[in-house]
Design a protein around this nucleic acid. Structure first.
Lengths: 202, 202
DNA sequence: AAAGCAGTTGATTGATCATTCAACCAAGGA
DNA sequence: TCCTTGGTTGAATGATCAATCAACTGCTTT
């Protein structure tokens, strides 16, 4: 089992799926980018769909190392970590002239009737992401109102990120992303204010 | 120019693109659903892409009649109209077991490098939607803080709707939609409170 | 009636694509 | 040395698909 070749397939497919989507990426595209041949790919994967599964597993398993750790370097405050993560998506958009957003989100909307296995992997990616955000929210302690549902807020932050990325990509204008994130920031400020008022009653 | 046949193509393509996406819908799919033949389709449209353009134009031109008017029937309060519109997406999700969300959003993320013409149509659809929302926000007058940017908030509501739909579809669970909308409702309540405090200073 | 035109038919074409397979290679163990 | 195992090669296959086109229909105009 040559893990190196397999990994090259997964990494190439990761790039291509993010760039062109799953359906528009042909097996030939993956082969030409990896300088390999079809039999070799089919030695490791039963079919194209299984390459997608491997890609989604790689995202799922690599979120800490490849997404969170770089975004959070030197940032300790849990709330700032949330916005630093959103900032990472922002720079990703900017460096691609607003064409690449969240690869998981793109795949989630592109695949209308996905295999249960693929859907579970998409869901697991989302759950991993919101899980990390929720740990930040939990770490914020009483800076947020005690009544606030941290899990629901974490899902909401994913909601906002995905929706903001969608609009920025469609308009090819980062302003749409920025304004949605600013709205979210305003909501946080209101939560902080409410929590402060609850802690120090008038 | 037989408008009837052309319209049948557009309506069938609308359904199919919403159901399976643009790329997964073959011209043969459209033909079998319309009981027509390929030459007939290519008589009206230079190519498959132009069918997509016609579909997006239909959505753009039909938003009032097909989306807003039904959702707002019997609802006058501008804020409630916003949540009624979100409710329309909710029932659309529910009646399809969380498989169909927003057709424009799906297409926007599926098409990674769309024609400028297609991208403009996607953007026009989004702009129409947020424009309608913004008119509601404007109509809400001083129930919202004067400092609040109505245009940005309208974009944010689209952001939330699209992100919420994405998660509900991925998890096949309306709860993800509901919780995001509830968060948005909470944000509105905080805005109302802030506006009230500004109107009646302590 | 003749001509012209919008619309339709449906077989055909040529490209693209995922997948298969038989042959081949290299290293390691018996 | 021979066999096995894991991996590679690349041509071939069969399916699918967007698009074409020449022939045809029926309606309207002259």
């Amino acid at each position: 089992m040559n893990a190196d070749t397999r990994l090259r397939f997964v990494l190439a497919a990761m790039d291509l799926f993010a760039e062109k989507g799953f359906q528009s990426t042909s097996v030939a595209d993956i082969l030409s980018r990896t300088q390999a041949h079809s039999g070799s790919l089919y030695h490791f994967f039963p079919g194209k769909q299984d390459v997608l599964a491997a890609v989604l597993e790689a995202y799922r398993d690599g979120i800490e190392e490849w997404l969170l750790a770089p975004a959070w370097e030197g940032i300790d405050d849990p709330i700032e970590r949330i916005f630093a993560l959103l900032g990472a998506y922002r720079t990703h958009l900017l460096t691609s002239e607003c064409t690449y957003g969240c690869p998981i989100g793109s795949l989630a909307l592109e695949l209308h009737e996905p295999d249960p296995a693929i859907r579970d992997l998409l869901a697991a990616n989302f759950a991993n992401w919101t899980g990390a955000i929720q740990r930040c929210l939990d770490a914020a302690g009483d800076r947020l109102p005690a009544t606030l549902d941290r899990g629901a807020l974490a899902e909401f932050i994913l909601t906002v990120m995905e929706g903001a990325v969608m609009q920025a990509r469609t308009y090819r204008d980062i302003g749409y992303f920025d304004r949605s994130i600013a709205m979210l920031r305003g909501q946080f400020d209101m939560h902080f204010e409410a929590a402060r008022a609850a802690r120090v009653p008038a």
